[in-house]
Amino acid sequence: MDTRAREVIEVFVDGRSVRVAPGVSVAAAVLNAGKACRSSVTGERRAALCGMGICFECRVEIDGVLHERSCMIEASEGMRVRTVDAG
């Protein structure tokens, strides 16, 4: 389905419904939901830094795929995103 045709897209960040406009990145959706992205090697909570796909701090799990750069991927309807803040 062409997500751009929709007015609002619903994604699930750690199971919680988050509504965003079409074209919004997963990183923005995650941050707007008050979440961080990943857990560092020593267990620090990390979120996006560079916004352009080079720092890899914004990695999340998207639809079961680990380590996706959330800043490089647009949110799409029904997407399931798992962050460091998942229970």
């Binding site: 990145s25 990183a27 923005a28």
Partner: peptide
């Protein structure tokens, strides 16, 4: 970049 991509 993040704001352009929808960060509020």
């Amino acid at each position: 970049a993040l704001v352009k991509n929808g960060l509020d």
